[in-house]
């Protein structure tokens, strides 16, 4: 794996000619056909489209957790499709942060311990990881809840814990799959504000998969998907507002 990461605006990530299908025979479904997609450093990019159009599949492929049948996956200057499983795992640990629709916090450990996990994976000491976790939790406004179990927190708070976990190791790329769909609009907006802030940091890209129009205005750019491919990319708030007039 090459350790030098490209910081040029155009090359945060580039996926081209992606094909992916599941199953065989009667259950065969073609999810992605020749999808192209790119994101730049320093932006919050939204990937939108109707349910089942392949957004999660695309996100999984660019996270390196799912193999494409065809196509190239270049993330931060690295050819993910050519890496071994081990290299991809190490790559994810270092450069990627994740936010899931279902939060996926470990229920039996404290909030701070949950947030420290990415640092522990990278081999930091428990003490150092916990200290950093607490700092990050303070930044998302949960400094007082660090020693509680995740289940004690509301959905919005849990998702903020997940954001802290996704940011604690200062990853270059933050991937969010429907981060607001399990939340009411107030909490959804709070979560998006934090993600917006994270994207404002130089050298970081935040990709948000969503079909929640309430949060469209947080995007710098918007890639629209349908039938397994990205058919249009909207640049800037004006363009987005023009095509999604409700917001």
């Amino acid at each position: 794996m090459n350790d030098t990461i490209s910081t040029s605006k155009a090359a945060a990530l580039q996926l081209s000619g992606l094909c992916k299908s599941f199953g065989s025979g009667l259950s065969y479904t073609k999810v992605l056909h020749k999808a192209h997609f790119e994101a730049r450093l320093g932006e919050l990019l939204m990937l939108v489209g109707p349910s089942g159009c392949g957004k999660t599949t695309l996100l999984s492929i660019l996270a390196g957790t799912l193999h494409a049948d065809e196509g190239e996956v270049n993330v931060l200057g690295q050819a993910l499709h050519a890496m071994s499983e081990k290299e991809r795992t190490a790559f994810r640990a270092k450069y990627l942060g994740f936010i899931f629709q279902q939060f996926n916090l470990i229920p039996t450990i404290t909030v701070a311990e949950n947030v420290s996990v990415p640092l522990l994976i990278q081999g930091h000491s428990v003490r150092k990881a916990l200290r950093k976790a607490v700092q990050t939790l303070e930044r998302v406004g949960l400094g007082k809840r660090v020693n509680e179990r995740p289940m004690k927190l509301s959905g919005g708070e849990q998702q903020r814990v997940a954001i802290a976990r996704a940011l604690v190791h200062e990853p270059t790329l933050v991937l969010c799959d429907e981060p607001t769909s399990a939340l009411d609009s107030e909490n959804g907006v709070a979560v998006m504000k934090l993600l917006r802030e994270a994207a404002n940091e130089p050298g970081r890209t935040v990709i948000v998969v969503t079909h929640d129009p309430r949060i469209y205005h947080f995007a710098d750019r918007m890639a629209e998907m349908e039938d397994g491919r990205v058919f249009r990319v909207l640049e800037g708030a004006q363009d987005i507002a023009a095509h999604h007039p409700a917001f």
């Binding site: 996270a63 957790t65 081990k86 795992t89 190490a90 790559f91 994810r92 640990a93 270092k94 990627l96 994740f98 899931f100 279902q102 996926n104 916090l105 470990i106 229920p107 996990v117 990415p118 994976i121 990278q122």
Partner: peptide
């Protein structure tokens, strides 16, 4: 019961061996 959490750990970059 912990499949999702273990899967999340795997996605976050924890290798199968660990």
């Amino acid at each position: 019961e912990n499949t999702r959490n273990l899967g999340a750990l795997k996605a976050m970059g924890l290798g199968t061996w660990r």
